[in-house]
Write a protein that binds this DNA or RNA. Structure first.
Lengths: 129, 129
DNA sequence: TAATAAAATAGTAATCATTACTGATTTGGG
DNA sequence: CCCAAATCAGTAATGATTACTATTTTATTA
């Protein structure tokens, strides 16, 4: 395979070796330990492409930073309003609120966003073909 | 009651009379029809306070804008990657993916975020009391 | 291997949604 | 009516992200 540049591979490694759901800046600092002169733009570009291809997940919790997750399997995120941490939680058939409380997390609000293509845009795409 | 300024009431009205999950800029333009010299900063400040108090919902879909929702009841959001629309969907016991597909929406990724206080910060708060 | 085209990079400059700030205005209680 | 607290309009500053360009790396073909 090896379709990846050294830089992209290092970025992916950083994401796979942590569970803190880091920002682009955090990834940048970590990758610099291996590739000292990597550019921040390179980090942003590769994070965007990895997100587009579905290899990683992009997460907006509303703290002004985009967060990234090397685990692209469907799961929930528990975002602490105080310390800003983002924990993973299994998405079982039982309510997420229960799952959160089991972890000692006290949720007050929750947001579910599905990304995809809406009905209208779907029909427009079919017409084009 | 009437704890609200004229400006905040107008902002809340705009949110309650639409289902497009608008950005701050969109709200600003709509409120200006009623209060022409309202300040953009006022819109931002009131949206933040209404979010903090739980009266409205703040939604980051990752398009570079924060979106707001006058309906603070728990429900899901379907964000189209093509046209950028955000639709509401009921959050029933059955899978969200099914609910989305029923509306003609084709989901590829989904993100669940619960907001609250994590276990560690919870215990720190108890110690303070 | 050498030549060439295509893709990715480093470094820097520009963008722009959001926040911070300041001096004026409004509001409510006594 | 007066005062203090809250809110406001208007504008300046911030900072995460994106855009850009010249250079380097990678892949392809002969």
């Amino acid at each position: 395979m090896k379709n990846f540049s050294r830089q992209r591979e290092a970025i992916l490694n950083v994401l796979h070796s942590t569970d803190v759901h880091p920002t682009a800046g955090w990834v940048y600092e970590r990758v610099r330990e291996t590739i000292p002169n990597i550019s921040l733009g390179t980090v942003y570009r590769n994070l965007a492409e990895l997100t587009r291809s579905g290899e990683i997940l992009s997460l907006s919790v509303g703290d002004g930073y985009e967060h990234y997750d090397g685990n692209s399997a469907p799961h929930a995120h528990l975002h602490c309003r105080i310390c800003g941490s983002i924990e993973d939680a299994e998405l079982e058939s039982d309510s997420l609120a229960d799952a959160a409380r089991c972890r000692g997390f006290t949720p007050d609000t929750s947001v579910y966003i599905a990304y995809g293509v809406c009905a209208e845009c779907n029909s427009k795409k079919e017409k084009q073909i």
